[in-house]
Design a protein around this nucleic acid. Structure first.
Lengths: 222, 222
DNA sequence: ACCTGAACACCGTTCAAGT
DNA sequence: ACCTGAACACCGTTCAAGT
């Protein structure tokens, strides 16, 4: 976090809770019971305080979520050995970001609440952009190519974790299942052909294959 | 919707409101005031009824959102003339889905609430899968390639509309801006190099370029 | 400077009863 | 069959006051 926290005057009432304590407690709640159980009221009782006390440590709930993602990234995004070949380096760095996010089911709410721009993630972004430049893209094109990779990565996470959540919610057939059981073979021959395999095909993890195809496409001059 | 709505017995109290009326009113609220103003209570007063009456026409709020997306897709997703060349057909069909979603700022909440599997969208999915098969992929690989395209498309929508919402929310510097104004050039040379151009570069619409790169990559044998 | 209590202005959904 | 009223069990946030 870019907050050098100016040295506080030692006047006034001493603090009973800290920002770090708030974030840590929030993390505990989310890990144990899921993101939708994290409310300001619940968090307040958990830190042994009142809802309003929290607002002295975070601006509002949205800032709390960003801080939570930041904290998560700082703790889990460890820098791997990256391959020397730039194209491979791009793939491995993107896959590392993806892996960290995929392990974190509450991420979707935060992804849609802010860019993923934790300082801990920047090193990975740097590796990707640098790899793209080394492969011959201009810095401008490299940034745009990185964005494309990020869209793909974020989209995979959002779609997949949402689908997973939906599956555990109940066991009624999903909307998709109902639609797919009633296709018109005349109009939609391909979909009819694969309808019964659709669920198993979409369950497969194709992130890495797609990523490689995407990187290849981005690096092929057009 | 795959709901043939079995012929109702003509007994009991006659209905005052219909499912279609509920959906239409919901759409009016969302169009006029945004998704977060759509509540069951608000919707009830708008149709001139009570919150609980709605639950006789939709299962719950989530189903209402899916019905809303379905209704939107049916009204706006008109089938364009598609190019004969399969590779171009894939691109145009995906871009048509993307365009319809991008014009619909409340889409994100629904995207993360369910797959986009409106019957109206299936024709486009069919075109994409068929184009991929015509380009030489097996039906299984074609479905997986379609999923990759869908991840990319959904991710672009989610990230971009969320960023747009964030910008209009207030005019404080965003978290990203704060992070980018304080980069370490030694550790992150590429990002430092493009830091001042980052905002304008990411504002550019690169969906189509990225899509073409992705399709090229997916169709290149590896 | 930090914390508290009470209140404001809401939510989605269930239950039991009415017509 | 369809609708209503009242209630349940919550939300995030503001305000004014206390220490």
């Amino acid at each position: 976090m870019p907050q050098p926290s100016a040295p506080r005057k030692a006047t006034g009432r001493p603090p009973r809770i800290s920002r770090a304590e708030v974030i840590e407690t929030a993390r505990r709640i989310v890990d144990a019971e899921g993101m939708d159980r994290l409310t300001m009221r619940r968090l307040a009782t958990e830190v042994g305080s009142t809802p309003m006390a929290l607002y002295h440590h975070v601006r509002n709930k949205e800032e709390l979520l960003v801080l939570l993602l930041d904290d998560y990234a700082a703790r889990t995004l460890h820098r791997p050995e990256l391959p020397a070949r730039p194209r491979e380096r791009i793939v491995v760095a993107a896959a590392a970001i993806h892996e960290a996010l995929a392990a974190c089911p509450w991420i979707v709410e935060v992804l849609t609440a802010d860019d993923l721009m934790s300082t801990s993630a920047l090193w990975f972004v740097e590796q990707i952009v640098d790899g793209l430049v080394e492969c011959g893209l201009s810095p401008e094109r490299a940034v745009q190519a990185y964005r494309v990779i990020w869209y793909y990565t974020a989209g995979e996470i959002v779609v997949r974790t949402t689908a997973a959540r939906r599956r555990t919610d109940d066991d009624r057939p999903t909307y998709r299942e109902r639609v797919f059981s009633d296709l018109d073979p005349g109009e939609l021959p391909r979909l009819t052909q694969v309808a019964d395999r659709w669920a198993s095909l979409t369950a497969e993890d194709t992130y890495l294959d797609g990523l490689r195809a995407l990187v290849d496409g981005l690096l092929t001059p057009r």
